[in-house]
């Protein structure tokens, strides 16, 4: 445990290839300019390389920590507490028509 590399000594992560960048951008729906791609990819390789040091840590049998507190899910009573808020909610919508949120035509129903 004491010979763990500190994050500063990390190498860029080669596994984050240019193709992986495009995959991540598609998954997260972010448009990237062609011009920014090389530098962005290099930066992300460094960041991922930096966090990769964790892989040397022995975590065998350790329960992942999703929540900082050992809480149980609170359950609420099945009661209607909200009333129609369409006008207020749609006041900040970019494009509505007939009470519907309008988006470019989706060719096929999912």
């Amino acid at each position: 445990m004491n010979n763990l590399k500190t994050p500063k000594q990390s190498e860029p992560a080669a596994e984050f290839s240019d193709a992986e960048l495009l995959r991540a951008a598609h998954l997260t729906r972010l448009a990237l300019d062609d011009g920014e791609k090389p530098e962005l990819a290099a930066t992300l390789r460094r960041i991922i390389g930096f966090v990769r040091v964790l892989q040397e840590l022995d975590t065998e049998g350790v329960e992942p920590m999703v929540h900082p507190l050992d809480l149980r899910l609170p359950l609420r009573a099945d009661e209607v507490t909200e009333s129609d808020m369409r006008t207020e909610a749609q006041a900040c919508a970019p494009d509505v028509a007939k009470g519907l949120y309008r988006v470019p035509r989706v060719i096929e129903p999912a």
């Binding site: 028509a97 519907l100 309008r102 988006v103 470019p104 989706v106």
Partner: peptide, 15 residues
């Protein structure tokens, strides 16, 4: 629900 026939040339979303 995505409504494909409710609006002309657009999809309308009812949540």
């Amino acid at each position: 629900k995505s409504l494909h026939d409710a609006l002309p040339n657009a999809t309308g979303v009812d949540l």
